[in-house]
Structure formats: structure tokens, C-alpha cells
Amino acid sequence: MQYDPIKRSLGRVFNATPGLRVLFYRLLNLLLLRSWYIRRELKKWARSQGSMADILDAGSGFGQYSWFMSKLGRDFRILGVDVKEEQVEDCNRFFKLLGNGNRVTFQEADLTRFSNQASYDLVLSVDVMEHIEEDRKVFYNFFESLTPGGMLLISTPSDKGGSDAHHDHEGDGISGFIDEHVRDGYSPEDISEKLQEAGFENVECRYSYGIPGHISWKLTMKTPILLLNKSKVFFILLPFYYLLVWPFAYLLNFIDVRGHHKEGTGLLVKAFKPAAN
């Protein structure tokens, strides 16, 4: 399964005007369960942070989390980095149109090489680490880039089927729903050990996407993308599909984000750089 062609198609539709782009962000916030988790944690962090902050959006993609964080504090300065030049250019253009280009900027960067010494109060990484083989190097760069006492917030698939991966059994040719990941997912023990090795302390891991969330993901993400890959005609039917499934998905997301899951297909991770003595 390749997401990029679908992303490019959606980007062309919603980039027609700044208003459509904001609508796209709001739709992503409604539909994506990981956004429910991430936005809740960002709100908690912002309440304790004060009026000023420097933030790194590590793997900024469409820029939806940079946009959300820019609304949490008028003096929050945000740098989004991504390996895809076209997305960086697109985000810089969009935020300039919004009038936020002076405090929300984007640049092309490889996270295995990107480090700004003690520059950020928060580093956010959403659905990025499963794409990077040299994760230890990235975690070290995150640690170096944080100010003392700064927080790292990660959302990533777990090893409980987070990539919906399955191997090619008996020559059936099935390689998995998502074939862009270098690992199927992290266990809490694995990612905690790597973060502590990089220097982080107070590492907190919790499962997301329990049974309710996994069902919601199948309804709102997996099924539509499978259909869109079969035929672009489904773009026309997509709004009607979501009108039907959204009430159920909303309830499932609500239950999932408020529950405690012994297992789940996602991981939400917080880790802190030790405060200066």
C-alpha cells in the first residue's frame, strides 16, 4: 500500500485556497485518532509552558500539527522539518498566506543529521520513527536539540500490529497494508530503552488504538484508502461514506482516548531531558 499518491491527490484538492487547507486540517483532527491523543497532550503541555516556546515539529508532513501548535500560544515559534522538499515549500507558502510565516517556518532536513543544540522546549514526532532505520541517532539528535527540562512527544505504531503488517505467507504475495515502514512497530520496552540510552529520563509509554480505536481506524482510514487505490471514482463518494461512518467512529475514538489499554496498535510516548542543575 502506497500512501503518497493519495496524499498528493488530497493535497491538490485542499490546496486550492487557504480556507480549504484549514478545513483539511480540521477534518484530519476529527478523523485521526492519533490527533485526538496528540492534541490532548499538547494542550496539557501548553498550559504549563507559559506564553513563549520554541518547538520542533520533526516530520511535519502537511503541517497540521504545526498549525495546531501555532494556535496554542501567540508567541510560540515553530520549525517544521521534513525530508520532502515539495511539502516544505507547500507549508512555507501556506503559512505565509495565513500571516504566520514569521513564527512558523519549514525546512528540508534529514532527522538523522538534524540537530540544533538546546534550541527547543518541545520536540513533536508523529508517525515518523517507524520510517527511519537509524532511530537511535534520531533520538540522540532530539535529546541534543531540546532545552534542559524539555519534552519529547512521540506517536508511533506499536509492535502489536500497528503497521497492520503481515508477511508473505506461502507465496500469497501479501506484504501488508503499509509497506513504507522499516519496522512493524515499537514495544514500550524497546523505545524506552533507546530513549534512555540517548539521555532521556521519565519516559512514559502508553498504548493507544485499543480495540475501539483499531475498529475506528479500519472504518475511517484503511477502508477508504483501499477503495481509493482501486478507483479514484471513490473520491466522489468519500463525503457520503464519512457521513455514514463518522458517528460510529467518533464514539469509538471517544472511548479509546479515555480508556487504558493493556495492548494497542499505537504507542504514545513522552520523555524529558533532565533539567539543568
Rank of each mutant, 00 (worst) to 15 (best):
S115G: 05
D121F: 14
R113G: 07
E85L: 04
N100C: 04
I78G: 00
V126H: 07
G101H: 04
G99P: 02
G99Y: 13
L79W: 00
Q117K: 14
A109Q: 14
L98A: 05
G73F: 09
Q87C: 08
S125Y: 09
F106E: 11
G99L: 02
N102K: 14
R93H: 02
E89F: 02
E86Y: 15
D127G: 15
D110Y: 00
E86P: 01
T105M: 06
H131R: 09
T112S: 10
V126Y: 02
N116R: 14
D121S: 12
S119D: 15
F94D: 15
D110P: 03
G80R: 10
E134K: 10
D82V: 01
H131Q: 10
N100S: 05
D82Y: 10
N116E: 15
S66Q: 03
E86M: 01
V126P: 15
L111Q: 11
I78E: 00
E134G: 10
G101D: 06
Q87D: 13
V128S: 08
A109S: 14
G73Q: 02
F94I: 11
V138S: 08
K137S: 11
E133P: 03
V123D: 10
M129K: 07
N102C: 06
K71I: 01
G99T: 05
K137I: 14
R136W: 14
Q117A: 15
E86A: 03
G73D: 01
G80Y: 00
N92L: 12
Q117R: 14
F76R: 01
M129C: 07
S125K: 01
